[in-house]
Every structure is written in structure tokens, then in C-alpha cells.
Write a protein that binds this DNA or RNA. Structure first.
Lengths: 228, 228
DNA sequence: CATTGTGAAAGGTTTCACAGCC
DNA sequence: GGCTGTGAAACCTTTCACAATG
């Protein structure tokens, strides 16, 4: 394995487009690891991740050079390097706000745990739900938000609540010192600049599909450019 | 033959980046409509959508010119034009595969219905779940997939199933003639080129947050570029 | 000698300034 | 006067070809 005192391997700037794909490579590497495969070429890994191989090599080049020319990449080593670059080796403690179907689905989602994200709290406003058990978690009252966040040393939060209360809860999270927030609420949230907010919008994706399907239906628009 | 510029206003090619934001503008316009606001400037609408105003104007310019200089946009009219451009005025009939927490969350998600996506079927493999009611839907057996898709005239599908069975079900959907698929399964799926597949990956988003949070924690990396 | 790592070109996206129009 | 619509510049991303190398 390469020496220790190379380029500061940790965190140079990774372009956003690249960053999003690195997480996909991680997933593919984990599958290979599970199958007991030890070495992989950029071509094979790119196939498994659904991208082309020059793109994959370019993406990896932002982290450092972790392959061997003429040979390929060591699956386990590359897996560790990407995890480290993304910060997945740190201790991430996640609170989920909203214990509806979505919140419960997220609480039980194995993809989080397998990446080192520990779900440490689950909140709901409904008194009938507070106190019930979801997996190994007990649902906390949203009234106790600040206290529970502190006690559990939460450093990330997921909003799985109705649009109407999302901004208010977001504000409380920020006031409580949380600066990494993932929102599933279908509404634009305002946060101060030091807070990282990301959004997952489930209906946006269906709407994009509708656009492409509509175009496919109408065969009268001249040369059709490859969609996606 | 490069000739024939028949520029129909309906569906010229919309750049992907623009397309994704148009759905956000729609949401913002719907909020304005609900508040009874009839006219909006590019500046106001851009604020509501969380983008800057030249970007919004550029995005709208791919559809046509639907504003009035010196005045702004008519909320209802612009709403209709964007909906039409995205194909939301057509009849979308969606099947959800997987009636776990995620599938049920999606089945009950009001954002779908309000955009004209009708959920017409919900499938599960578990015999204990098949036949039960979720909202106004009765859960169908995945064994009857093809028959139910045909009977309900489904033209879009959502995969909310475990990674292990996602590819197999995806293949059956494609064989049954579905060519618009949204997957929540954390796995790379293979589809033929005529099929539009989109993916929502919930752990990718947390991983991107982790990367930025890690960088914010380490103040020792020289000039820090503003994240996001 | 197969395969990585990377400059350079091509293609796509965002920003900007301002012409055009009500 | 005020706001939209858009070409042109700046910036970012992807592709490509090939030099570098174990």
C-alpha cells in the first residue's frame, strides 16, 4: 500500500458533481466486498456504478491516486479512502423529526447504519405516538427537542414532517446548534449561511419522468435528443 | 438535413438543470395561488424558490415568453404553462411496488395527487399485507403484477422494495410495458435505453452533508471555498 | 502491456449586463 | 420607470486521447 506522507489525503475540494457519484462508488465497492472480490478495474467499477470509466477515474483523481497502473484498485483500500474523504469515519449522530410513515421508513433504513450514521432520536408531535417504540428507538416528544438533541449529542437532523411545520422546526434545529439538515418536506426552507441544508423531493422526480414520457409520446418534434 | 426549424412552443428541449428547477417554481406558484396572489415578479418568485432571478428568467425563457415587461408574471397563467411544458396535464397513473413504510408514505403523499399523479395500485409480496387497505387503496399481490398493471392502465411505477428484489421487479415492469420508473432501492438498476429510470438515494444526501460538515470542522486546510 | 491518472477540448450551466418592451 | 428576455462571458462538468507506470 502507498506510503503515509503523501498529499494530505483528507479533504481537498471535491467538485459537487463528483461528490455525489463517490457515494455510488462506495455502494458498488461494498457489494464487491460482500462478494469477496479483492481487486477491480476502473472499467468494472464504472459498470457496477452505472457511469463510464474515464469519469470514474477523473472522480477518483480528485481524492488522490489510489490505484495501480496495469492492475486496478484494491477494493477494501479504495473503500476506506473514499469513506475517509467523505468524512464517514467520523461519528455521525442523526435525529429524525416526524414519526409518520416516512420517518419510520428512514429510522429503519439499513443504508444509514451501514454508512456509520447512527439514528439516535426520533421525534413526533402526536401524543399518541410519543413513547411508542420504532425498532430499538422510543419516540420523543417534539416539545423536548432541545433537551433530547443535547443529551443524545445529535449532530445531524432529518426533517420528515409536514410542510406547514418544517420551517419552524428547522429554525429550532439551527438554534440548537445543528448545522447539517436533510429535508424531505416539500417546501423551500431558509437557513443561515453556515448551515448545510439538502433537500430530497419525491415529486420532482416523478415530474421529470412525466416530461420525458410526454416527449416520447409525441413523435413529431424532429430529431429526438437522447433523454436523461 | 439541418433545415426545418419548426419551433413549436410546446416542447422544445429543456436543459436538465433547468427542468429540475421548473418543478420547484411550480410548487412556489401553487403556494402563491393558495394565498390568492395573482401577479409576481421574477425577483419575488426566485426568492420563493430559493434561486436568483436571472437564473429563473433564463429557465422560463426555454419554455417561451410568458411574462410582461415592466409588470411580471400572471401566477395562474405561468403555472399552467409550466405544467403543460412538463406534461403534467396528461393522465399519469402510478403503481407503487412495496407496501412497507416507504411505500405507504409514498401512497399517502399529497404532493403526488396535487400534481396530477394518481396512485392506482400498491403491491407487496407479503401475504399478510396483501388485501389490507392503505388509504383508499387495497394492496395487491406482486404475483398479480402484470394483470393489475394492465387493468389499472398504469403508465409509471415506483420501486420501494428491498435492493435484493429491485432488479427482478424492474425487469417485470419493463416487460409489462412500463417505461417510466422511479426507484428508491439503493442499488444500480439496468434498463433498456427506451426506459426512463430515475433514482432517489436517501443515504447519498446524508453522505454529502457529512462531507461538508467534516470540512467545516477542520479549519486547517488553507483557503476554504464556500461550500454548496 | 494493461490500466491508471490527467491535461486539453468539447459540452453544459450560471452569471451578467443591457436591449427591448409595456 | 421597471421588469422581462437573452446574447456573451465565466465557470463547471464530461469526454477524450495518451503519457506514465507498476
Amino acid at each position: 500500500m502507498p506510503g503515509l506522507h503523501r498529499v494530505e489525503d483528507a479533504a481537498r475540494h471535491i467538485p459537487p458533481a463528483s461528490l455525489a457519484r463517490l457515494t455510488i462508488y462506495l455502494r458498488a465497492l461494498n457489494s464487491l466486498l460482500a462478494e469477496g472480490i479483492e481487486r477491480v478495474s476502473s472499467e468494472e467499477l464504472a459498470d457496477a456504478a452505472g457511469v463510464n470509466s474515464p469519469k470514474l477515474r477523473k472522480d477518483l483523481s480528485y481524492l488522490g491516486s489510489y490505484g495501480t497502473r496495469g492492475v486496478g484498485y484494491d477494493v477494501q483500500y479504495l473503500n476506506r479512502q473514499i469513506s475517509a474523504a467523505l468524512g464517514l469515519t467520523l461519528d455521525w449522530r442523526v435525529a429524525i423529526l416526524g414519526a409518520g410513515n416516512l420517518g419510520r421508513a428512514l429510522a429503519g433504513y439499513s443504508g444509514f447504519a451501514s454508512r456509520g450514521f447512527e439514528i439516535v432520536a426520533l421525534f413526533d408531535a402526536d401524543q399518541l405516538v410519543v413513547g411508542s417504540e420504532v425498532g430499538y428507538l422510543r419516540v420523543s416528544a417534539v416539545d423536548d427537542l432541545e433537551a433530547v438533541l443535547g443529551r443524545t449529542r445529535t449532530n445531524m437532523a432529518v426533517l420528515a414532517v409536514p410542510a406547514a411545520v418544517a420551517q419552524e422546526l428547522c429554525d429550532r434545529l439551527v438554534a440548537a446548534g445543528i448545522s447539517s439538515i436533510l429535508s424531505f418536506a416539500p417546501v423551500v426552507l431558509q437557513v443561515p449561511p453556515h448551515v448545510q441544508l439538502r433537500k430530497v423531493d419525491m415529486s420532482t422526480e416523478l415530474e421529470i419522468l412525466a416530461y420525458h414520457a410526454q416527449r416520447a409520446q409525441e413523435p413529431d418534434l424532429g430529431p429526438i435528443s437522447r433523454a436523461q
